[in-house]
Amino acid sequence: MRQKFPVMTAIAVLGFVFLYAPILSLIVFSFNESRLVTVWSGFSLKWYGELFRDTQILEAAWLSLKIAGLSASLALVIGTLAAFALVRFGRFRGRMALGVMVSAPLVMPEVIVGLSLLLLFVSMEGLIGWPGGRGLLTITIAHATFGAAFVAVVIQSRLVTMEMDLEEAALDLGARPLRVFFDVTLPVIAPALVSGWLLAFTLSLDDLVIASFVSGPGASTLPMVIFSKVRLGVSPDVNALATLIIVIVSIAVTIAALHITRSNKHAAR
């Protein structure tokens, strides 16, 4: 094939270089001795050491992980309920409105989502005294709202392809509706639940704009810290941090991909 289509191969190589060269250089320079980002002066792990002594970054990373975990779990519950209402309850009043509103956060500009949530939190605090201040709680709620939209889409597409007759068969064999849900529905949609949760988790970990709007003093997520650091000039310990994130994300994506291909093979039969 390489001999037959030299032009195609060249284009493919170019594409891969374009995509991965920046990431590759970032990884390489995270092991650079020099403080200068563009000059290679020898191999060193010192920026990794520096990174693990930087309490600001460590705290931000921990906060981000907590928010991502909490908001993804919250989003999973809300999104799954919404997906069930949309797919399984047939026609009901407001179904159309619910469908549109559930998917609206997918296309709404983040600036607007962030601003409107900020206004909501501020006025709620003024009216009912909750949530007191802004930080982990408000960011978690904000991330759960748009995470739920993504979860709803993922679960909805699974439910649509899952034939109703699996559940009917369980009913017919003597299971009560709640039992059917736990015995049949949940196990069958489990892969979609996992990918929905992972999606919400990554989106939360990744978000800068909305978090900036709804966070308060003392609650800076990892993207916020990185962004503020980079504005003062790129320092090699950010490269080290980015390298770690890339490694973790690659592992997670590989696991998720393996999981999804396996369950797709199940579903395709």
Partner: peptide
């Protein structure tokens, strides 16, 4: 069931 509806 026509589709057999076996629990996968």
């Amino acid at each position: 069931f026509q589709s057999y509806a076996l629990f996968p």
